[in-house]
């Protein structure tokens, strides 16, 4: 979707403000927000793509005026309600109005193993890859109302395959309860001027990671008019 989270190429946000390496949180509630977001995923009612979609569908004015952990908190509330674990009334009233459902709960003892294991996104290769390293490609032009990981600035652009990562879960399907629909995943590199026009730095390259359905065969020349 063309939401506020798709920030690449926007302007007017001002300078980046660096911060020291040991500054991990700016308020204690941020610690709890992080931990709650991780722990609440343990019952398995949503996946990472659904989490991202819950955040990116916040109203743009809300998204752009919320700190990142505030975005996470609001995303978590939506996931809890849409999964049925908690009701909207319970969120609003800030108290339980009934017993919880049976759910797998993350224990302190499990935390190290769960964090150290993670969740792999790669899947068995079920068909040959359509593209090889060095091959020219062009990203599709598409404006889905649902989740996608193809940023607006990289749609309809000519690039070259730089890496082939294997077969990965497709977020566009996974975010909507449509299964994993795994596809080959590639790193695609673009010339800065292909993305941004003649004003871009001549020596800028940008890469994205793109699933196979984000790509079409390109032309060797790679110029926009030759496709």
């Amino acid at each position: 979707m063309n939401g506020a989270a798709d920030l690449g190429g926007m302007m007017g946000f001002g300078p980046v403000v660096p911060e020291p390496e040991d500054e991990r949180f700016h308020a204690d509630w941020e610690r709890r927000a992080l931990a709650l977001t991780l722990a609440a995923a343990r019952p398995g009612r949503w996946n990472i793509d659904q989490s991202r979609h819950a955040r990116e569908t916040l109203h743009p004015a809300v998204y752009l005026t919320s700190s990142y952990y505030a975005i996470w908190v609001q995303g978590l509330e939506r996931l809890l309600v849409s999964s049925g674990l908690v009701s909207a009334e319970e969120i609003a009233q800030r108290r339980a109005l009934g017993p919880g459902e049976p759910a797998r709960v993350l224990t302190a003892a499990e935390v190290p193993a769960v964090l150290a294991t993670g969740t792999r996104a790669d899947r068995p290769e079920h068909r040959p890859a359509a593209f090889a390293v060095g091959e020219p490609v062009r990203t599709v032009v598409r404006n889905p109302t649902g989740h996608t990981r193809l940023p607006r600035y990289a749609r309809g652009k000519a690039g070259v395959v730089e890496r082939v990562h294997g077969v990965h879960v497709l977020p566009d399907a996974h975010a909507h309860g449509l299964g994993e629909q795994p596809e080959w995943l590639y790193t695609v590199r673009f010339d800065g001027r292909e993305l941004w026009g003649a004003d871009a730095a001549a020596d800028l390259t940008v890469t994205i990671d793109a699933w196979e359905s984000y790509l079409e065969p390109g032309t060797r020349e790679g110029s926009p008019s030759s496709a």
């Binding site: 709650l36 908190v73 978590l76 674990l85 919880g100 224990t107 302190a108 935390v111």
Partner: peptide
């Protein structure tokens, strides 16, 4: 966030000790 944590603990979905460990 404080309200959300107590709600999730009360519903039995979250163990506060796990939050501390994270």
């Amino acid at each position: 966030v404080e309200a959300l944590e107590s709600l999730l603990v009360e519903k039995g979905y979250v163990d506060p000790a796990a939050l501390d460990t994270i």
